[in-house]
Nucleic acid binder design. Sequence first.
DNA 1: TATAAAATTTAGATTAGCCTAAATTATGTA
DNA 2: TACATAATTTAGGCTAATCTAAATTTTATA
Lengths: 217, 217
Amino acid sequence: MQSLSTENYLKAIYHAAQFREGTVATTSIANKIGAKPSSVTDMFKKLADHNLVEYEKYKGVTLTTDGVKKALHIIRKHRLWESFLVSHLNFSWDEVHQVAEQLEHIQSEKLTNELDRFLDYPTHDPHGDPIPNRALFMKTHNKILLLDLPLNKEGVCVGVKDNSSDFLRYLDRRQIGIGTPILILHREEYDQSLHIQAGNSTLMITEKTAENIYVKP
Amino acid sequence: MQSLSTENYLKAIYHAAQFREGTVATTSIANKIGAKPSSVTDMFKKLADHNLVEYEKYKGVTLTTDGVKKALHIIRKHRLWESFLVSHLNFSWDEVHQVAEQLEHIQSEKLTNELDRFLDYPTHDPHGDPIPNRALFMKTHNKILLLDLPLNKEGVCVGVKDNSSDFLRYLDRRQIGIGTPILILHREEYDQSLHIQAGNSTLMITEKTAENIYVKP
DNA sequence: TATAAAATTTAGATTAGCCTAAATTATGTA
DNA sequence: TACATAATTTAGGCTAATCTAAATTTTATA
Ligand SMILES: [Mn+2]
Ligand SMILES: [Mn+2]
Ligand SMILES: [Mn+2]
Ligand SMILES: [Mn+2]
């Protein structure tokens, strides 16, 4: 039991569970997957039959230990492939996701582990997200939102919350990327905009942008 | 219209068409794909609807220009991936096929072409089969079966007819691979076995083996 | 807390890709 | 050339994954 669809559901449930405590709701998965809630209900039952989630009618699901393992395994593959595409195939960070969505379903332990070795066991993908290692363990940065960075305290960009191409390309234009040092120079009370120093240039960003960038203080 | 199943049929039809002139028969595809003839008939109709094959009831199919293009594109991806697995991920030539069967279905022009560049535009895969270039053109070696190599005329192994793991591993044990120089020292009339020199060692092979190795004189 | 709104599930249908069994067509051989 | 055999197609079904519409349950709020 590990169809493409099943794997996508497990991953979606895993990611949804990161956002909030408790169970994952039918509609939240329906939105992520792009399916109708009734289809999600069907799949929840199927996953429960295979002991990948615990499901209680009208109450949503939580991943079982097995479910988490499978999800992390897909995420491992997804992020390793994203890393490969950027480091060796000239992809930019806003192009990799769509292809990794396909590559993450390739089934071959040897392929996954050799790719990991070939990339020299990367710990983070091009978006700053942690890559589970072979034992499915990942260490996360203790990152905060740029919005919450104290004034005049330097941080380094270590990730993004919004992974959309639009946002990533916007950051490219502003010359902000993983590793860029950022300092908040001034907070504008009137419209919550921020004057920041990013790398060598100073620029203004909106609150919305600031709450989609992760920094390590 | 380019499901995984469709792509596998196109590839199977393409390969079957190499073997003999004329149309490709229902049962030959059924055997290759591992499906029942009735399922193949269904798919033939579907492919014909999409102008990928010409189909006449009870007469089999031939690929259209579009069908050939799609088939060659899958084959290009298959062989590029096989090359990558061997050259960078420590796969041996008997391990790559199964994984390439999955990877060949990944849809991304950029991925395919960047992989091609990364591998420095290889012309042949690990089994000696030609890799279609970006324009889907491939140049084939003018190879012959080892069986047909004249006595005491040196040839170089450039491919295999049988791609099974068993045969490939057998060749590994005999230290015969792509590039190995081979010379026929003696043909045994009694049982058609051959004494050959392969690389530095002399050894005996059966007729069956000799008709599954391609050499360039 | 009653009730309206939102969320979720159920019922019933559809599609792709496969199957078995039966019918049909083509082929090889006496 | 007749007819047995092989190849192929048709008919009817199945499953996974989806959908819409209707029913049910939960939740939010007046
Ligand atoms: Mn991604
Ligand atoms: Mn990522
Ligand atoms: Mn292959
Ligand atoms: Mn090959």
